[in-house]
């Protein structure tokens, strides 16, 4: 992956409108942000938080509106957004039949990166899974799965990190790990997360309320 200036990443979300069938979930949503900023998306159930994150991640095409990502002053075409964005979502699972280490090895290699075993283990340490790397992902508890998903999303050092309900299924220790990772990412990238937890909303520099 090419070396980029992480201090100059900007994201523009412009007039996003989306609907499922006849039900409109997002109407003309817009905001922009740059490296070092974090945005908390909040709103009642069904207000379109997850949908908005999926649209920003390029997993869903909005019926109207545009997502523009630029790095070091250069616009990134929408096909290449994938290289710079990672999404942690309850709807995106890792592989039950691979161990924690194998999952991370696979995801780094398939996204075009090379990472040593030591580096992968250090990421597992970071999320508190240091002794469980050789266990099958399918045997993890829901909290451990959430931690591994977070490690998978951050190991490739994305410029834009999207977290959908980042602390769901986590105990207090797990929440602390997530908050640390969010803080670290905020320092040099863009962080956008969706939550309904009142004590997490304040972690966002700005708040976008949907619905």
């Amino acid at each position: 992956m090419e070396k980029i200036d992480r201090n100059r990443v900007t994201l523009e979300v412009d007039g996003i409108t989306h609907r499922y069938g006849v039900r409109r979930v997002l109407t003309n949503i817009g905001f922009d942000c740059q490296s070092g900023e974090s945005i908390c998306i909040t709103g009642h159930n069904g207000s379109g938080k997850s949908t908005l994150l999926k649209i920003i991640a390029g997993l869903l095409r909005p019926i109207k509106g545009d997502i523009r990502l630029s790095i070091a002053g250069q616009d990134i075409d929408s096909e290449s957004h994938r290289k710079h964005i990672r999404l942690v979502s309850p709807e995106a699972e890792l592989y039950d039949d691979l161990t924690g280490i194998e999952n991370l090895e696979f995801l780094t290699r398939v996204s075009g990166m090379k990472m040593s075993h030591t580096q992968i283990e250090s990421y597992l340490d970071r999320v508190g899974l240091h002794n469980r790397g050789n266990d099958m992902y399918g045997a993890y508890s829901s909290g451990m799965k959430q931690r591994l998903k977070l490690a998978a999303a951050t190991i490739t050092r994305p410029e834009l990190l999207l977290l959908d309900e980042p602390t769901s299924n986590l105990d207090d220790d797990g929440r602390k790990v997530v908050y640390e990772i969010m803080d670290q990412h905020k320092a040099d990238g863009i962080l956008i997360f969706a939550t309904n937890e009142n004590d997490e909303v304040s972690l966002g520099g700005r708040i976008v309320t949907l619905g």
Binding site: R82, R86, S89, A92, E93, V110, S111, T156
Partner: peptide, 8 residues
């Protein structure tokens, strides 16, 4: 896992 694969 398809969504994960789409992202990565």
């Amino acid at each position: 896992t398809a969504q994960t694969l789409r992202v990565f």
